[in-house]
Design a protein around this nucleic acid. Structure first.
Length: 509
RNA sequence: GGCAGGGUAGCUCAGCCCGGUAGAGCAAGAGAUUCAUAAGCUCUUGGCCGUGGGUUCAAAUCCCACCCCUGCUACCA
């Protein structure tokens, strides 16, 4: 039986169109999903949109629309952007889907039946953008009136009867779970933060709202709707069939990893597992919180007007270049800076010069010196053996880095091979060998064709279009493109006709 | 205020656990070459390793104090 892999992005709140931050998470998950598919895993990649809550209701009203229409409009932008970025998800979930709504109510009832939900009266300062109450612990006197400690925006005083979830009950269980699963939250620094915050104590949280009605009603009390975060988190279950489609659900749950940005760590690393504990379901295996992008070292925000939209850069650089840049530029987990000069450098140096030009020079030489056919390796020199060793070592390192989502390091390893190949050409000087006619030229050209093939396999998850073009240029078929069977050196058949096309990455500017 | 992480070449960082006369990539400069997207290859420049003490034959690396930055968190009121 094939092993499974289930990866998710957060479902994005439809108050804004997709930008570089959401694209980042979505691309990272796509790369991981494509990698796992390549490795033969039965893979499920879930993304989607979060469409309920007061914030959406207000935004819709402000434009004279009903919230569902408003959401539809934004959602279409998500579809388009993800298509433009070549994101291959298995399912796109919307919290307005009837199936999802049912799942939320089912989960809610499970937790209620377990005695973890009670009715209480709550009065306090509420942050609408964050969709949560600011606790007394968190708020300084100025903070109460001054704004939300998380997002700094104004809070409003609310008093209502709500239903509460006994989060406090799960403090010890949660700590225990973390101790037994040291890699549950990554990077480690985030794990430590979560751990110490839980140690300080967990308060019960209000998980229903009565002051507006854009949401999913409680099964037991139609006057209240379920808190958006409870609603949203449940997508990870409903997206794989919970509760009705047991076959799919049992196959894929628990999720192997929830990819998130660091700002929503608490909801995912604490509230979500505790909800699942209460419902008698397994928690996800890993929460990976990545960092934030700045723009020219400046914090990105709507008010500053420096938000970057994927379309802005795709037109100029191409999808694969953007995908590459985002994952290569910074170690996954850390913050990073997005800037045009940085993007230009990566694109022109690494993609155009080192990779694109490598392929171009190899194909040209095969064309010129061997009638566009991959020659038969003559075994005159020992470099084939050396390349074999190099790629064996690359295979190990690459997969190790991919397993721990260290995309930048995985790419760095692939680039070591690319640089070696460029150097190999300069060292062996095929243009000289072509005059000598010793047969050594065949060895070199064969090795180069094979190197390019292997590189394209490794790049496939990151740059699917590029990998596909390389495959066509080399004239090879799909069977040589898989992991691990396609990774051994020496598979490309002599006589294969190459098709030199145009430059893979035209230089920008 | 507490806890955690960090301050090393112009920039981004590795080295610090297991002390022994500073490393990589990018940027900058030079050279040989021509298969190639004026690409690639080779070489060079560049650092009192946050500050002040201490331990040691020897400290970026260990110890103490202080300064600055980042994250989590608390509070004086």
């Amino acid at each position: 039986m094939r092993p499974k892999y289930y990866i998710t992005t957060p479902i994005y709140y439809v108050n804004a169109q997709p930008h570089i931050g959401t694209a980042y998470t979505t691309i990272a998950a796509d790369v991981m999903a494509r990698y796992k598919r390549l490795c033969g895993y039965e893979t499920f990649y879930l993304t989607g949109t979060d469409e309920h809550g007061q914030k959406i209701l207000r935004a819709a009203n402000a434009e004279g629309m009903n919230p569902k229409e408003y959401a539809d409009r934004i959602v279409s932008q998500y579809y388009k952007t993800w298509a433009d970025l070549n994101i291959k998800y298995d399912y796109f979930i919307r919290t307005t889907d009837p199936k999802h709504q049912k799942a939320v109510q089912t989960l809610f009832s499970k937790i209620a039946n377990n005695g973890d939900i009670y009715k209480g009266k709550y009065s306090g300062w509420y942050c609408t953008p964050c969709e949560r109450y600011v606790s007394v612990k968190e708020s300084s006197p100025e903070g109460l009136r001054g704004g939300c400690p998380v997002c700094q925006r104004p809070t409003e005083f609310l008093e209502e009867e709500n239903y509460f979830f006994r989060l406090s009950k799960y403090r010890d269980k949660m700590l225990d779970y973390l101790k037994k699963n040291g890699d549950f939250v990554e990077p480690v620094s985030r794990y430590n933060e979560v751990f110490s915050k839980i140690e300080m104590g967990l308060d019960d949280i209000s998980i229903s709202r009565a002051s507006f009605d854009w949401g999913i009603p409680l099964p037991s009390d139609q006057k209240q709707i379920i808190w958006v975060w409870f609603d949203a988190l449940t997508n990870y279950l409903s997206g794989v069939g919970y509760p009705e489609d047991e076959g799919i659900f049992k196959k894929f749950w628990p999720a192997d990893v929830h990819l998130i940005a660091k700002d929503i760590l608490w909801f995912h690393a604490v509230i979500w597992p505790c909800m699942l504990f209460s419902a008698g379901l397994e928690p996800p295996l890993k929460i990976f919180a990545h960092g934030w992008w700045t723009m020219n070292a400046d914090k990105i925000s709507k008010s500053k007007g420096n938000v970057i939209y994927p379309a802005d850069v795709i037109d100029r650089f191409g999808v694969d270049s953007i995908r590459y840049f985002l994952l290569r530029e910074i170690p996954f987990g850390q913050d990073g800076d997005f800037s045009l000069p940085a993007l230009l450098r990566r694109h022109n140096n690494e993609l155009a010069n080192e990779l694109g030009n490598l392929i171009m020079r190899c194909l040209t030489m095969i064309e010129k010196y061997n009638g566009s056919k991959v020659p038969k390796s003559e075994g005159i020199d020992s470099s084939k053996e050396l390349w074999n060793e190099l790629f064996t070592s690359l295979e190990q390192k690459f997969s190790a880095y991919m397993e721990c989502l260290q995309f930048s390091l995985a790419l760095e390893k692939v680039w070591e091979a690319i640089k070696m190949a460029n150097k190999y050409i300069d060292d062996t000087k095929p243009w000289v060998l072509a005059k000598e006619k010793t047969g050594r030229l065949s060895d070199v050209l064969y090795n180069l064709a094979e190197i390019i093939r292997l590189v394209s396999v490794y790049l496939m998850p990151f740059m699917p279009n590029t990998a596909e073009i390389i495959r066509q240029q080399l004239g090879i078929d799909d069977e040589m493109i898989s992991i691990p069977s396609g990774l051994s050196f020496g598979q490309i058949r002599p006589g294969t006709k190459v098709n030199k096309g145009s430059a893979l990455f035209p230089k920008v500017e």
